[in-house]
Nucleic acid binder design. Structure first.
Lengths: 145, 145
DNA sequence: AGCAACTGTAAACCATATAATTACAGTAAT
DNA sequence: ATTACTGTAATTATATGGTTTACAGTTGCT
């Protein structure tokens, strides 16, 4: 699947773990390990969903909105990676003189949709809070008090 | 995901619907709408699993083995497209001095594995027979008796 | 007002992944 | 032997995805 889903989870987790709940695209890009422009693109979409607020200008950046921790990975999947199961190339073709060739596409489409539904149900069971908790656990295991 | 999974479903369905349960790579390639060499590659893998028998030489081709209709799409997924959920690019990195960056990869890995398990469970519920039946229904709807 | 530090967005560029094609050795029927 | 197949690897073409550049728009600061 699409890696923007991965980036979104990363960014939101990162913001949540900062005391200020805020960072700019350059700082986030360093953690995600990509270019700031890419972060701005993904966070632009998250802003449209109300998950973050952006502040332009000096001292600006991205601020995590309250309640965003309740968002599920399913929500993020649907926003950023929906449809990723179906390959860009598929077999057959409507116009071919073969019962299988002309009908397989519709049938496979249904199967991909069903698979996607199963995947979404699974991702709906995971919240950002869950991911954040796991990061904290992993961190405290590395530096036990 | 990988389109070889799609090709495998197509080929096996096609063979099953032929009276002789047999066809050569050129014929199959026309229906799938790809190059014969690609069909040979995929069917070579299916042969190793015992789903088809190949016959080389004149008059040769691929013969569907008895019982292959019981195979599930999950079986074919595992054989041809396992691991397709995780994107080739992922965020973060072990070495980065950031709690999120250094731990996210392992956590996302688990999530992708879980998603894949959910997907497999869904695909395990669909047999080749189901697909074959749907093709036949679609065909008879187009040409009612 | 003017500068500096940000975001928003699109375009150009580059790397990687995927499919098509070519090529040829091996095998079997006639 | 010849012909019609498969097996498989190498090559080429194309599509996708990520990086980078560029620049306009916004805001805080002096």
């Amino acid at each position: 699947m699409n890696s923007e889903f991965n980036i979104a989870v990363h960014c939101l987790t990162l913001l949540s773990l900062k005391e200020e709940r805020m960072a700019n695209s350059e700082e986030i890009a360093k953690s995600v390990c990509t270019h700031p422009a890419r972060i701005r693109k993904v966070l632009g979409l998250l802003r449209k969903q109300g998950y973050v607020t952006t502040k332009e200008g000096v001292g600006g950046g991205y601020l995590l909105n309250p309640g965003t921790e309740k968002v599920t990975l399913g929500d993020l999947y649907r926003l950023l990676a929906r449809g990723s199961l179906k390959p860009s190339w598929c077999s057959g073709g409507e116009e071919l003189p073969c019962e299988v060739a002309s009908n397989i596409e519709g049938i496979m489409d249904q199967i991909y949709s069903g698979g996607e539904a199963a995947l979404e149900r699974y991702l709906d069971g995971i919240t950002l809070t869950d991911v954040i908790n796991q990061i904290e656990e992993a961190g405290s295991a590395a530096n036990p008090t």
